[in-house]
Write a protein that binds this DNA or RNA. Structure first.
Length: 423
RNA sequence: GUGGGUAUAGUUCAGUGGUAGAGCGCAAGAUUGUGGAUCUUGAUGUCGUGGGUUCGAGACCCACUAUCCACCCCA
């Protein structure tokens, strides 16, 4: 037999039980907070038709242009592993006629996302996001509530010092006007811009001010900001967002350079920033998407949401100290001597397991001493040694592992004692 | 796509051109019915892959691959 050499695709990882417990924990906290804010859970497919992301996320974005896992299925349909969660949720909103349900529609999710890009700290090709989408409300109160939900969630995890940055990137009224203002400014420096920015100048001028290249940063430093060129409605809404956050005592800073890399964002955008995730400082990013539902074929409907990188969140938590979430330990380990005793004991174990009690018995064919060692390593609370003698006399000893103390009980009473936790 | 670091046991890592190593973990044993401490013993290696230099390469050189970090972008 030729042995296969197994390996892991780049940017993926196995999540083993110790780490899986942390995922579960985060998921549970998130789920509880979301439900208290009126959100219901949704689980959409990991792959969708490619077109959904092309149209939803935007043709000019890096995500669509170079980071999608796209393939044809056997029916020659182009499918793509989801690079983000919002497009799928909005697709589901449209397809399931959620516009005829009481508004707004509030949904949360947790799932794997896929982006084909080079791996580094806090960035993987398969990663986990938790996020929410609130679809149907046009007013800024929902923006505030969304940020407040995040704030509550982080508080529950004892993370109270993330920096919240907010900005407004305007609507379909003021953005085109601003784009012209921005292009007027950049036109004088066109030759000095990096190659990417020359393309951005034509296709997506807003992203010019987000460029991190030295020569471009020098130019963007004095560029006019969208925030200073908003229409009256957007200005008004942004002020209400700030007032709302102030009202709830949520601290934030206005960062005029946040533009977000996904095309669907409008008006309020925000990020939660950490210092513990390497250069990938954004733990969570989100914002409004007032045209997305319409772009994907639904009736004009506003929406807002965010997505959080669970792996990045986990780094943030770890940086504050070890995140120890203990597994369950067996209440009882049965140590058996001989086949008859094993069969007898396995019936006891089976009965207790059916009562949802965590109990254990050796299935390695080990000797008594090795079974004791194993019970110790498994951190069992009690151990009972059963041989023919105990079965015949109906008397056995239960050992309390922590103290080493032993107590004599009848074999008949084992199940009830463990069930009622009376030793 | 571009740059830099790294690649040796399950894992963390030593290893000066001359026999493949340690800690941890795993397994067996130290009075044939009792765990934790200690001790003994054991198993697991294509030394990332392929070339080259050399009497001799885990080590030196080249290429490739993987991995980590960074640029771009994002969660």
């Amino acid at each position: 037999m030729v042995k296969m050499k197994v390996s892991l695709p780049k940017g993926t990882k196995d999540i083993l039980s110790e780490e899986m417990r942390k995922y579960r924990y985060i998921e549970n906290v998130f789920s509880e907070v979301c439900q208290n804010y009126g959100y219901g859970e949704i689980n959409t497919p990991v792959f969708e038709y490619t077109e959904l992301f092309q149209r939803g996320v935007g043709e000019t974005t890096d995500v669509v242009q170079k980071e999608m896992y796209t393939f044809n299925d056997k029916g020659n349909r182009s499918l793509t592993l989801r690079p983000e969660g919002t497009a799928g949720v909005v697709r589901s909103y449209i397809l399931n006629g959620m516009n005829s349900l009481p508004q707004p529609i509030k949904l949360f999710y947790m799932g794997k996302m896929y982006r084909y890009e080079n791996v580094q700290k806090g960035r993987y090709r398969e990663f986990t996001q938790i996020g929410v989408e609130a679809i149907g409300s046009l007013i800024p109160e929902i923006d505030v509530e969304t940020i407040s939900l995040l704030n509550t969630f982080f508080n529950k995890l004892n993370i109270n010092d993330l920096q919240i940055r907010i900005n407004s990137i305007g609507c379909k009224e003021c953005r085109p006007k601003y784009n012209e203002i921005l292009k007027d400014y950049y036109r004088n420096y066109l030759d000095d811009l990096c190659d990417d920015c020359k393309i951005r100048f034509e296709k997506n001028p807003l992203r010019l001010i987000d460029c991190k290249q030295h020569q471009c940063m020098a130019i963007s430093k004095n560029a006019p900001y969208l925030l200073d060129n908003l229409c009256d409605e957007c200005t008004d809404d942004f002020n209400k967002v700030k007032e709302g956050l102030d009202n709830l005592g949520i601290r934030y800073i206005v960062d005029k350079t946040i533009v977000r890399g996904l095309d669907y964002y409008t008006k309020t955008v925000f990020e939660f920033i950490s210092e513990n995730v390497g250069t990938q400082a954004t733990i969570c990013g989100g914002g409004r998407y007032d045209q997305l539902v319409e772009m994907l074929g639904g009736k004009p409907t506003p929406g807002i949401g965010f997505a959080m990188g669970v792996e990045r969140l986990m780094m943030e938590i770890e940086a504050r100290g070890v995140m120890l979430i203990e597994p369950k330990f067996p209440v009882l380990s049965m140590v058996t001597l001989g086949e008859a005793a094993y069969k007898f004991s396995s019936r006891i174990i089976d009965e207790l397991r059916k009562e949802d009690i965590f109990v254990d018995i050796d299935v390695m064919g080990r000797g008594l001493k090795a079974q004791m060692k194993y019970a110790d390593k498994m951190k069992s609370k009690y151990v009972i040694v059963l041989g023919d003698e105990e079965i015949k006399t109906n008397k056995c000893r239960i050992k309390i592992m922590e103290s080493g103390q032993e107590k004599e009980i009848s074999v008949d009473s084992i199940v009830n004692r463990i069930k009622e936790n009376k030793i």
